[in-house]
Design a protein around this nucleic acid. Structure first.
Lengths: 189, 189
DNA sequence: CCATTTTAGTTAGCTGCCTAACTATTAGCC
DNA sequence: GGCTAATAGTTAGGCAGCTAACTAAAATGG
C-alpha cells in the first residue's frame, strides 16, 4: 500500500472535533479506515523487507507462488484442490493476482530475465503462452518460504488464537461489503 | 497496496494442509495476514476510485490534506493541536506522509503543474521551500471531502460500534508490534 | 470461405514509489 | 574568514501499477 494519509494517525478527539465542520464524517468509521490501511501498510512493509533481501518484491513473489502451487506434484494427499489444474497463462496469472495483463507482462519479463521463470508458446493456440518455474525459481522460493512464514508468525504473535479468529471475521465483513461496492462502481462505468 | 498474493485467498484447510510441508507455517497467523492485506487493498481501491474521479490519487490527496490541516485558520476552538504549527516544507511533508523526499518532489511537481499547490522559497534559509495550497487546491479538497467521508462511512457500515472498537484495538496490537519489527530491521542495516 | 469479432499478449506512456548521486546553501569549527 | 559537515531539494534511473492502442491468432457467422 502506497503513501498513507498520515504516518501518525489523528487522535480520536481530533476526529470528533472535525465532525463539527464535516457532518458527513463518521468518526469511528474513519478511525477503523485509517487504522486498517496504516496497519496493512506496516505489515506489508515488514514482509516486503523480508524477501527484498532475496531480490524479490511482493509482485514477483506472488507470481512465483502461483506458479509453484500449480506445478506442485499433484499428490494424492492433495491440498491442490485450491486451484483448478491446467497450464498457467499470463492472463490467468493476472486474473489470480488481481493485476492487468500489461502489468503481468512486465513482471514476467523481469522474472524471465532473472532466470526464475520461462515462457513457452502453446502449440495448439499460438496466441497463448504458458509460464513455468525454472529450477532456479523453485529453489529460490524454497529458500525464502520458511523465513516468510516465520515473519508472518512473528507479526501476529501478539494476538491470541481467539483474537485472530475475531479479527479475521471482522475483516471479512468489511471485505464482503467493500467487494460489492467495488462491483457497483465498476458497473457504473 | 499493490499486487496481492491472491485475489481469492486460500481456504483454511489448504493452510492446514500446507503445514505438513512447511513446519514454520502458522495457519492462523497466515490467515490473519492474508485477510488483513486483502481487505486493506479492497478498501483502498474503493476510496481511491472515489477521488480518482477528481483527478487525485491517494498520494496527491494525502499531500493536500496535510497542507489543509496546516493552513486551516487556527481557530480558538482548536482541533489543530494535532500537528505542530509552522511552515510546511517538502521534507516535513515527506516525513508526515511516510515517503522519501524524492517521492515528495515528484508529487509536488504534478500538484503544482495542476495549480493545486505552490512552492515558495524561504527568504531566511534559501535551501528551504514552503509549500502552500492554492485557492484552487482548497476548493477541490472541500468538494471531495464530503463524498470521501461518506465513502468511509459506507465501507464500515456493516460493523457495529462495538465491533469497530474491537477491530481498531486488535489492529493496534499488530501495528505496535510491526513497528518495532520495522525499527529492528532498519537498525540491522 | 472470407470478413468480422474476439482473445492473448505486448508496447507506449503515465503515475508514484524507491535509492543513489548531485547542487546549493547553511552551519560548525579551527 | 574559510574549509568541512550537514541539510534541503532535485535529478537520474529502476520497478510496479495503470490505460489505451496495437499485433497476431483463433473463432464466428453470413
Amino acid at each position: 500500500m502506497p503513501l498513507l494519509l498520515l504516518k501518525d494517525l489523528p487522535r480520536y478527539e481530533c476526529l470528533l472535533e472535525a465532525v463539527k465542520k464535516f457532518p458527513d464524517l463518521d468518526p469511528s468509521a474513519c478511525d477503523v479506515f485509517l487504522n486498517l490501511l496504516r496497519t496493512g501498510d506496516e505489515v506489508f512493509r515488514v514482509t516486503e523487507n523480508n524477501y527484498a533481501r532475496h531480490g524479490l518484491s511482493q509482485g514477483r513473489f506472488g507470481v512465483l507462488m502461483l506458479l509453484k502451487k500449480r506445478s506442485a506434484p499433484a499428490t494424492a494427499e492433495g491440498g491442490e484442490h485450491c486451484l483448478p489444474a491446467g497450464p498457467l497463462t499470463p492472463a490467468a496469472l493476472a486474473e489470480a493476482a488481481g493485476v492487468t495483463r500489461a502489468t503481468m507482462t512486465g513482471l514476467i519479463d523481469t522474472l524471465e530475465r532473472d532466470g526464475l521463470v520461462k515462457r513457452v508458446r502453446d502449440a495448439h493456440d499460438r496466441r497463448m503462452m504458458s509460464v513455468n518455474l525454472t529450477p532456479k525459481g523453485r529453489k529460490l522460493l524454497e529458500k525464502i518460504l520458511p523465513s516468510h512464514f516465520r515473519a508472518m508468525a512473528g507479526i501476529m504473535s501478539p494476538l491470541k488464537e481467539s483474537e485472530r479468529k475475531t479479527l479475521v471475521s471482522l475483516l471479512n465483513k468489511i471485505l464482503q461489503h467493500a467487494s460489492t461496492l467495488s462491483l457497483a462502481q465498476a458497473k457504473r462505468d
